[in-house]
Simulated scan of single mutants.
Amino acid sequence: MNQKRTFGTLLTLLGIAGIIWGAIAFLMGGDGGMVGKYTSAVPFVVGLIFFFSGINLLKTTKDQA
């Protein structure tokens, strides 16, 4: 496994975590959460960016034997 695939996997996992965190914060509505209802869009959008860039990196990286 080369470095690009490892970095793509890391970005994808961080993106999934950001999407889940943003969705949970939005559903909580700012009651006891770390972020408010409308500021929960920030981790969600960053998670989407990380997720799609990680998936793109995994798809475009060629395997070298």
Rank of each mutant, 00 (worst) to 15 (best):
M28H: 05
I49P: 12
T60F: 05
G29T: 06
L13K: 07
I16P: 02
K59A: 11
G30E: 01
Q64L: 14
L27F: 10
I24G: 04
S40M: 07
L48A: 12
V42A: 14
M34H: 07
I20G: 05
F44E: 02
L57I: 15
L48N: 02
I19R: 04
Q3F: 10
M34E: 13
L58C: 09
F50H: 06
G22F: 00
M34I: 11
G29A: 07
R5H: 11
A25I: 02
G33N: 10
I49N: 08
T39R: 03
T12V: 06
T6V: 14
T39S: 12
N56F: 11
T12D: 03
F50E: 06
G32I: 03
T12L: 14
G8V: 04
T39G: 05
L58M: 14
F51W: 08
T9M: 15
A23G: 08
I55P: 05
A41I: 13
S53Y: 05
I55A: 13
T6S: 11
K62F: 08
F50W: 06
N2W: 04
S40R: 02
F26L: 13
A23V: 10
S40F: 04
F52H: 06
L57C: 15
K62N: 12
G18M: 00
A23K: 04
R5C: 03
L14H: 04
F52V: 13
T60S: 14
I19W: 01
G33H: 10
G36I: 01
L58Y: 04
M28V: 07
R5N: 11
G8F: 03
A17W: 01
K4Q: 14
G15C: 00
I20P: 06
V42W: 14
A65T: 09
G54W: 01
I55H: 05
I49Q: 09
I20Y: 05
F26V: 02
A65F: 11
K4V: 11
L48I: 04
I49W: 12
G54N: 02
G33D: 11
L58R: 13
Y38P: 03
G47H: 01
T9W: 14
G47C: 03
R5S: 07
G29L: 09
F7I: 14
I55Y: 07
P43N: 02
L48F: 06
